[in-house]
Simulated assay, not measured.
Amino acid sequence: MNEFKAQRFTLTRADLVRYAGASGDFNPIHWSERTAVAVGLPGVIAHGMLTLGLVGAAVDTWTGGAEVLEMGARFTAPVVVPDDEEGVEVTVAATKVTRENDTVTIAMEVRCGETKVLGMPKAVVRDGA
């Protein structure tokens, strides 16, 4: 649990459809451009919990599957997913790692392009080292 390289994830519209099926969240803002724009969004957006799930995937990679005791963030900006084959990239980077007793707290920054899409993302995991 010593290397915390930024993790990059690509999301496509196909990923949103798969996530909708797995989560049961079929809100049309996650697949219909017409609906998303009609409610004031810049386009189809990724599910917030899918974005937070990318944080979990990064933490899992960094820690080698350590037990997650706490994980959270505020949803501050949408991840707009274009209707193409390339999708959009979301980057999860560790900004501060603190070890205390038997836990490790990882503060992060989550961006889509230049935009921070999660506020105050952090995870607390059991330190297996």
Results as ranks from 00 to 15, higher is better:
Asn2Asp: 09
Asn2Ile: 14
Phe4Trp: 07
Phe4Cys: 04
Lys5Asp: 05
Lys5Pro: 06
Ala6Ser: 14
Ala6Gln: 00
Gln7Gly: 13
Arg8Val: 13
Phe9Asn: 00
Ala14Leu: 12
Ala14His: 13
Val17Leu: 04
Val17Tyr: 07
Val17Ala: 07
Val17Gln: 09
Tyr19Thr: 11
Ala20Ser: 13
Gly24Ser: 08
Phe26Ala: 09
Asn27Ala: 02
Asn27Gly: 02
Asn27Pro: 00
Pro28Lys: 04
Ile29Trp: 01
Trp31Arg: 15
Glu33Ser: 08
Glu33Gly: 03
Arg34Val: 12
Arg34Asp: 15
Arg34Trp: 05
Thr35Asp: 03
Thr35Met: 06
Thr35Cys: 05
Val37Glu: 06
Val39Gln: 03
Val39Cys: 12
Pro42Met: 11
Gly43Asp: 12
Gly43Ile: 15
Ile45Val: 14
His47Glu: 03
Met49Gly: 07
Leu50Lys: 02
Leu52Met: 15
Leu54Gln: 00
Val55Met: 07
Gly56Val: 15
Ala57Met: 07
Ala58Thr: 12
Ala58Gln: 02
Val59Ile: 13
Asp60Leu: 05
Asp60Ile: 15
Trp62Met: 10
Thr63Ile: 08
Gly64Asn: 10
Ala66Ile: 13
Ala66Asn: 08
Glu67Asp: 15
Glu67His: 11
Val68Thr: 15
Val68Trp: 00
Met71Leu: 11
Met71Pro: 03
Arg74Leu: 11
Phe75Tyr: 08
Phe75Pro: 13
Ala77Gly: 08
Ala77Met: 08
Val81Ser: 06
Pro82Ala: 04
Asp83Ser: 02
Asp83Asn: 09
Asp83Ala: 00
Glu85Asp: 15
Glu85Cys: 04
Val88Asn: 04
Thr91Cys: 12
Val92Ile: 11
Ala93Lys: 07
Thr95Asn: 03
Lys96Tyr: 03
Val97Pro: 09
Val97Met: 09
Val97Arg: 11
Thr98Ile: 13
Arg99Val: 12
Arg99Met: 04
Arg99Cys: 09
Glu100Trp: 04
Glu100Gln: 04
Asn101Lys: 07
Asp102Gly: 01
Thr103Ala: 01
Val104Ile: 14
Ala107Cys: 13
Cys112Pro: 07
Glu114Asn: 10
Glu114Cys: 08
Glu114Ile: 12
Leu118His: 11
Leu118Val: 10
Gly119Pro: 09
Gly119Asp: 05
Met120Thr: 14
Met120Asn: 14
Pro121Leu: 10
Pro121Ile: 12
Lys122Glu: 06
Val125Met: 11
Arg126Leu: 11
Arg126Trp: 03
Arg126Ile: 15
Arg126Cys: 04
Asp127Phe: 05
Ala129Gly: 14
